[in-house]
Each structure stands twice: as structure tokens, then as C-alpha cells.
Design a protein around this nucleic acid. Structure first.
Lengths: 336, 336
DNA sequence: GGAATTTGTGTAATCCTTTACAGCTCTTCA
DNA sequence: TGAAGAGCTGTAAAGGATTACACAAATTCC
């Protein structure tokens, strides 16, 4: 079923078939039709390996994420894939399971498959791993790796905007005593979120009470424990912002277990807007992470690089607050 | 950076380098070492396209699912991928978004990429789409497509076992009045679940009260509406089994909204055991779908076919009940 | 009418591995 | 000692597409 068969059937050379296949100009109308018919009749599908071998590109992009099981990622993967499919690019994807050392393996695998470009959407990135891709001539785009801003194309998300909106919402409701559930400060992404939150707080002239900041593991369990710690404080915050939704869900559970009613006794705001956020009770107000847009930017960036076009300077994307039912005025307060 | 360079450096023929690369026997110890060194020094990575072109296999498997955003799938994908990676197989995956017609495109894409095998893990399958893969000589494995049992290798899940366990649990608690939230009966998978439930009910000598069966869309919203309908019945069931967790979560929300306490006033059991099941309040008792095992079976099956080995006859897998906190004795009853 | 283009198509080299086959050197054995 | 066999390694032909280059025919231009 190779191109030669088609060429014979259409009574032309393989070169001509190839030209038709790739839509090159300069083939007579009638010849094109003849070739097309032969292709259809023989149900011919070009061999991608032969093509890639010759052309040096595979039309495959790699996508590396931290964890498929984290509900944050499916939308991102979905968006990336949809765009890729539209351009005829196949995506192969792997995950590091949060282990930056595994990034190295992932990238190696992608190099071995000779993908045309790689998007790295993990919270943690070791630069050494990237170098290997660069050395192999494969362009890379990162997500929100401030530490490497400038060195690599990088889709940035301005967390502060989201926290500021959340804060303004809480302040408007009358809250003044606001706690925070942070992630492990050894993780870039968690540190970034905490810094953004404290920055937003400071912008509003509020100071950060360290006893109102608890640290969790970015998962439900950690949120539960962090909330237990915060509930034991005296005085206690009247509102809590969590640095991701999973921990906010844990916080909700802990509050429930301690018979603290949300939102009447305590307001909770999450971050990310993963699907569960709207499925818990009460539905969680949360800051929506623009991950579909992140995926889109990342893909476009790689696509441009691969085509040898200019890439624009990174303008950060902004998360926005989504108000649901986990926020209300503090007990005994009236709206101002 | 081709094999010729390595061969020159190691002072052998490309054939010998290839033999070393592929671990073929019959190369002198010393030569192997020399070649290995050359490979390492030159940081040589074989070109997969050239290899695939020659060998006729790509070491890529396709995985087609219904929906990445459905929390059911990530674990399945993860498990499939992990096994594949262990064998040096790359997975490319796509989703049909529940549209059986899109399966056709998905399979076409996979054929164009000339994957070595395809696993189809969607709820709905049109046979015509599969034929194209078979014609292209690509083996296919299905998940739970009873309609095509026998024609294609097929990983079956015996839903009845799970429902029977759920039922026995509810009966032991003292429930007799048990309702069911089904999915759209136009979908194979939803119909299969409903049939399995009614079969389990009948096995226990209970009859099916049609007014205690409601139909939802397999998502949270549909579960909510279905539950509202069931709550309006008189008499009302004391326990509800939903045909997936998302609808069970919706049911939980509806119960909550109607001030029906779960599990005190009403017991709810879900199906699948997706991550949210344990994150809602109360944590949902549910029937765990053995999807990691499904993925494993599917992969092994394809792997055997690709290697030309015998494949075993399908023994179905069994889901099992996971008891959490959404089930309790009916109001005013004591355990028997 | 002949030179210069333009248009359309074919020839053959190339991309990089794998592998059938051949050939060489050394043992081993009768 | 000569033949047979074992153990290594090299030669060269695939495998299926793309593409630089060449060439023939048709058109345009002086």
C-alpha cells in the first residue's frame, strides 16, 4: 500500500503523488483528480514514519504534567489536545507524579520519540532536564516558572489578581480577619501562591497574622488538618482562603466535623475552580485558574516556534473570582 | 548524529552498532563495550522513524476514552500508561466526547499514526469504526461491550456483583424500599447498569417498583433532578442506589436542599468510586469500578496480540462495595 | 521563427535503521 | 591435516516518503 502503487494506478510518478498529497501547486487539475481517485480507491494512507524520516519532523508534541489524577489537569490537557488536533499535531503526554527528577525521564522519552516540541506544565522544574531537550533542538515552553522567566518561553499566571478579587469580596462582606491555608513552601507553585496572597493582603493595608496561616499538602487530607489547626486559634479568622480547591474541600469537611457552619460561621474561598468545587456542599466560591487559556498560549507559542515565526513577549494571564455559596458576611455583621 | 557516526567512532559497522543497540547476542564482549562507549560519548539516540519504517512497528498504542474531564478516566489512563511505559510503549490518546461518530475520526488518526494497537474505552462503540482498524491490521480491545462479545477481545466487568453487594449491605441494615437512579437508556453502559441492578434486586426476591426508578444524565445535575423526582414519591424509598457517583453526588445535594439528612433519613450508594466520592459530605458509600484492572487487562491483551502470543478467554472483573458514611439503617429500624 | 519563459512531470538521491546473507578466523574433531 | 562448525563482523538491500534537479512541451515575446 505504498505511494508507488498509487503512482502506478494513477499513471504518474511518486513525486507527483507526493505533490498532490501535500497540496503543492503546479500540478495539472486533471492529474490531481486522477491521483485523488487512485488514493481513494486504494484507501491509501501515507506512512508517517517514512515521511518523518525524510522531513525531520514528526508532527507530535509532548505534554508533561505533574499528575493526571489531579483534577486540575484534565481541562488543561483537553484544551491543549484540541488545539493540537486542529493543526494535525498528535500529543503524547506523560506525568512526573510531582517528582522533578522524573521530569528527566519524561523528557528523555520525548526526545527518543523525537517530538517537535514540548510543553512542561508541572509545578516544579529542574533546569538541567530542560537543557537536554534544548540540546536536542526541541523547543520547550513552561508554565508559570518565574524562576526561569526570560530563559525559556513561559506562560505566566498573575496569582495576585485572583487573590485581590477574593480579598475585595471578603472585605465587602465585612470580613477583616482572614486566614490562609498554604501549600508546602518547598514547592515553587505553593510558594508563589502564598507570596501572592500576602502581597494582596498588604495592598489592602492588612497585615499577615502568622498564626492564621496553616500549611497543608495541597490535598484534601492536608486541608482538613490545616483547618483543624486554624479552628483551634483564638481569636479565630472569620474567613479562610485556601491555596487550592482540594484543600478548601478538606477545610470544608473539617469545619463540618467541628460543627462550624459554612458560610454562616465561616467563609471559605478556594483556588483553581476544579470540577469538585461546584459539587461539594456548599458549592465553593473559588478563584478560577485560567488553565484552558494557559494551554492555548502554550500551544500557540510552540506552534509559532516550530513554524519559525516570532513569539510575542509574555503577558501574564489573570485568574478571577467565581462566587458561589461558601462566602457570606461574618456572624453578626452587616454589609457595608 | 546517526548510527554511521557511532560506527566510525567505535570502528565497527552500522550492523554491529545496531546489534548492540538491540541487545542481540553474538557480539564480542569487547566490541559491545567499545560501541557502548561511542554511543555514550556521542549522546546518540536512535531515530525512531527510521527504525519504525524498517521494522514496521512503532511501539505506540492508542487509547480512546469517552471524556478526559470525567473523573472516571484519569485512573484508567494512568494505569494503562504506566504499564505501557514499562514495556517501552508510548501511548497516544484521544477522546470521543461521548459521540460514537467521533470514534471514527479517532481511529483514523491512530491509523494514520500507525499505532501498533488500540484500546477503546468508551461507553458507546459503533462497529463500523472498528472495522477500519482491523482492516489496517491493527488489533483492538474493547471495554465492556457486551454487544460485541466474541467478535473482539473485550474486558468485561460484571456489574451485577457490585449491585448485589450493595443490596446485601442495604438489606442487612434493614432497608426494603430501595430506589435507583439510572442513566439514559440509549447508552449501552447505562442500560447495562440498570439491567444489572434489577437482576440483583430480583435475585433477592425484591420486585422493581418503576416509580422508584428515575433517570438522570450521568452527571451531577441529572442526579439532582432525579433525586428531586424520587423525593416527591409517596411512599418514598429509604435507600437510593445511583448508577454512577456523579449522580449520587447530585442526589446528595438534592437531599440536602430538601433537608433530608443522609444517611439518617436516607441512604445513598454510588457507583465507580471516583475521587469526589470520598470528598463530599458525607463521604459516599460506593461500588468501586475496577478500572485499574480493566486498563491492565486491556493492555496485557494488546501486548500479547502484538507479540503473537495466545490471549486468554475473558473472565469478567468484579466491582466491590466500599462502605463509607452515606449508608445507615432506615429511620426507626434496628439491624437484623 | 527562434529564444526565453513557464508549466508540468519524471529521475534518482536521500533520510536512518535493520537484517539477510556472505565471509572471515578460529576451534574442534575424525 | 582437512573438513566442519562456531563465533564475529561486514556488505548491501530494503523500507516509503520527499525533493533537488533535469527535462520536455507549451506558451510568450521580440
Amino acid at each position: 500500500m505504498d505511494i508507488l502503487q498509487v503512482a502506478k494506478r494513477a499513471n504518474v510518478s511518486t513525486a507527483t503523488v507526493s505533490r498532490v498529497l501535500n497540496g503543492f501547486p503546479g500540478v495539472r487539475e486533471k492529474t490531481v483528480a486522477r491521483v485523488r481517485r487512485a488514493i481513494a480507491e486504494m484507501n491509501y494512507v501515507p506512512n508517517p514514519n517514512a515521511r518523518s524520516l525524510r522531513v525531520g519532523r514528526t508532527r507530535m508534541f509532548g505534554l508533561i504534567v505533574s499528575d493526571v489524577n489531579n483534577p486540575f489537569f484534565p481541562e488543561l490537557i483537553d484544551a491543549f489536545e484540541a488545539l493540537a488536533a486542529a493543526e494535525g499535531i498528535e500529543v503524547i503526554f506523560t506525568h512526573t507524579n510531582y517528582d522533578p527528577r522524573r521530569l528527566h525521564n519524561c523528557i528523555r522519552r520525548m526526545i527518543e520519540r523525537s517530538v517537535d516540541a514540548i510543553a512542561v506544565m508541572t509545578s516544579e522544574v529542574e533546569e538541567d532536564s530542560l537543557k537536554e531537550a534544548i540540546n536536542a533542538g526541541i523547543p520547550v515552553v513552561l508554565m508559570n516558572q518565574r524562576a526561569m522567566a526570560g530563559k525559556y518561553p513561559n506562560v505566566l499566571v498573575e496569582y495576585t489578581t485572583g487573590f485581590r478579587e477574593a480579598l475585595e469580596h471578603l472585605l465587602a462582606l465585612g470580613h477583616r480577619d482572614i486566614g490562609f491555608i498554604a501549600g508546602p513552601q518547598s514547592l515553587n507553585s505553593a510558594r508563589g501562591r502564598k507570596d501572592a496572597f500576602t502581597a494582596a493582603l498588604r495592598d489592602h493595608g492588612l497585615h499577615v497574622r502568622s498564626e492564621w496561616i496553616a500549611i497543608g499538602d495541597m490535598r484534601v487530607e492536608g486541608g482538613r488538618k490545616a483547618m483543624d489547626a486554624l479552628l483551634a486559634r483564638n481569636p479565630r479568622p472569620t474567613a479562610i482562603v485556601a491555596s487550592n480547591d482540594l484543600m478548601a474541600v478538606g477545610a470544608l469537611q473539617a469545619a463540618h466535623a467541628s460543627r462550624v457552619r459554612v458560610p454562616r460561621d465561616l467563609s471559605i474561598i478556594g483556588f483553581d475552580d476544579v470540577p469538585i468545587a461546584s459539587m461539594v456542599h456548599p458549592p465553593l466560591s473559588t478563584i478560577r485558574h485560567p488553565r484552558r487559556e494557559v494551554a492555548a498560549r502554550a500551544f500557540e507559542c510552540l506552534w509559532k516556534i516550530v513554524q519559525g515565526r516570532e513569539i510575542a513577549v509574555d503577558q501574564p494571564l489573570h485568574p478571577h473570582l467565581v462566587i458561589r455559596n461558601s462566602t457570606a458576611p461574618p456572624a453578626g455583621a452587616k454589609r457595608r
